[in-house]
Design a protein around this nucleic acid. Structure first.
Lengths: 335, 335
DNA sequence: CTGTCCGCGTGGAACGTTCCAGCGAGCGTA
DNA sequence: TACGCTCGCTGGAACGTTCCACGCGGACAG
């Protein structure tokens, strides 16, 4: 106890926390004593008495997926800038709902100050209630209605992509999703695609669900051959994919089957992960402003924590933009 | 206090911690009371009295780099499996030593149980001393001598790569590094490359340092044009790169300058990030067993924590393997 | 001169665990 | 019967903060 420097522990506490009501001279004296003794306040004791930490829990879909890795990095940075540290939980994918919930529980046990969801699936009224009671929640990069959220306009982004394809002259355009996890985003993107098609008076193409690496896909629950869909007599000339990883998977699929991109098939992705910008990939895609999403997301949590934001959940929507690269081109006249 | 179930708090504590010396009947009774009251032990209080957490600090180079993201994911998973949570700190790169040290300090303040370094630069005897005293340290994926480490055999991997190129018939082979951060690994890989060249009685080529995206590079401190090095009269036919990201950068560089890979130039990388396996990249590379490294690294920290490992630092070395893809081929006879 | 108020600092309670010394009952043994 | 040992449980101290009620002295107003 640095009280050896002439004051009580209460005063030391006041100095450290910067409480006012401490005379300048005293503060000075205490600071010097702290310096001399190399005294460090015990974070664990502070956390204990306050019953909360300065840790933010972050739920990540899958760090192998650059989308999450790139978001995670930015979340961590903004959290750190605000004096918080980030505790990451990776919840693989494949809809393992119980696992995700158990991770949330363990974050709550750790008494994290707040939770940032970069991905979510699973619903548990029980966990939700405990969350409401203990820690502010923000969804960053996706939208859910039981917490603040900040996300790109899925429909807006889908429109950008679709209008780009239509503008190039495509008329037979498919929507392709590989998602299970972010089903909600995927649906919103599908809706945006359809609305853009409708607005251009073009008949919407099939909505394809595909497990990357498979030869088959499903349309309205019917299994189909993906090659047929892309090259058959009624095949499409362009595909809008619900995310970059799916688009890149499709690119590779096309390569394997000798389908020329963009000669025979144009492909648009969604996210603009760094990978999409490699010259060898060069994917036209809808860019999400990762940095803005992370910044606003952290601000939301901090605002709730400090009480500067109260009331009903806020849903910030940021603007996507289109990055045109070389995976899209006008359809071949010959077709 | 669940003592309302007929026992003292000490007994409850004993039951929760699974101490033996509690009668089965009592244990049963306490368990039931816990169930009924929905009682949850207060982690913060426990941490306070024990003066340590079950958090592992993880220092990551840059999550935008898939190498770190893929390692981070696996570290997190093994930590979780062992009952620990992972607190990540991203220390961008570019040698910002003070920043890295301040992140380590903040982890120590949080009283993390141990620290896993996936990257490191900067040396501070002061911080090192505090680390020694408070938390076990493991380097995963790189080797340092002031903590346990688990890493791939850099020289062994470099040999695999170099021998592969020599085996294909290459004689003019360069070593290229883009590293600043992991200078140590880069040096070890260079050494492995040189020793393989010597063993095959081939004259070692230049050791090139390159900042990706630049037209220029340096050899022994001399600035040179990278194109000249690759295509000039005395140009090389193959390059062994110190890591995949550098190799992919070089691939793109070659594309931009109309240098055919592997026709004119063979390229080998190091790491085998998932990205390298994309058909459009298809990089021949030295594979690091990420999963093993993460597992062994976590085991090391846990072993130190439990006291089952004591004594001098251990340096586990795991075996790399070569993954041959299409960025390498025999040199053109015509040259 | 007295009463009041304010600025500054103090001491102790509280937080919920873990840890430890100790105690009582029951049992086996001399 | 008496003694000691073991098992099971208990009660209190300790951990290092924060928070709060209070006390003291000086300044200022009446």
């Amino acid at each position: 106890m640095a009280a050896l420097a002439g004051v009580s522990k209460s005063t030391v506490s006041n100095v450290i926390r910067g409480t006012d009501g401490v005379a300048a001279a005293t503060r000075e004296r205490v600071d010097r004593a702290i310096e001399i003794l190399g005294y460090r306040p015990n974070v664990l004791a502070r956390q204990f008495v306050q019953q909360r930490t300065t840790i933010l829990g972050v739920l990540v879909g899958d760090l192998d997926n650059p989308f999450y890795a790139e978001m995670a990095k930015r979340i961590e940075r903004y959290a750190f800038d605000a004096g918080y540290t980030a505790m990451f939980c990776n919840i693989e994918g494949e809809g393992d709902e119980d696992f995700a919930l158990s991770r949330v529980e363990s974050l709550l046990e750790q008494r994290v100050a707040g939770i940032v969801f970069l991905a979510f699936f699973g619903r548990s009224p029980d966990v939700q209630r405990r969350l409401d009671a203990t820690a502010p929640v923000v969804f960053a990069g996706l939208r859910e209605d039981w917490g603040d959220s900040v996300s790109v306009s899925d429909s807006g982004g889908a429109k950008l992509a679709t209008e780009h394809l239509i503008g190039l002259g495509h008329r037979r355009i498919a929507y392709l999703t590989t998602d299970h996890v972010e089903a909600r985003a995927s649906r919103a993107r599908l809706a945006g695609y359809r609305s853009a098609m409708r607005a251009a008076r073009v008949k919407a193409g099939p909505a394809i669900t595909w497990a990357a690496d498979s030869e088959f896909a499903t349309i309205k629950g019917q299994q189909v051959s993906l090659v047929d869909e892309l090259t058959g007599r009624r095949g499409v000339t362009a595909v809008f994919c619900s995310n970059d990883l799916g688009a890149i998977g499709l690119l590779e699929f096309a390569d394997r089957h000798g389908i020329d991109v963009p000669g025979q098939l144009s492909i648009v992705g969604f996210d603009n992960v760094q990978l999409a910008g490699l010259a060898r990939i060069s994917l036209t895609t809808v860019s999400q402003p990762f940095d803005d999403i992370a910044r606003i997301g952290i601000q939301a949590v901090l605002g709730r924590l400090s009480g500067s934001i109260t009331g009903p959940f806020r849903h910030e929507v940021v603007k996507p933009s289109l990055v045109v690269r070389t995976s899209t081109a006008p359809p071949r006249a010959s077709r």
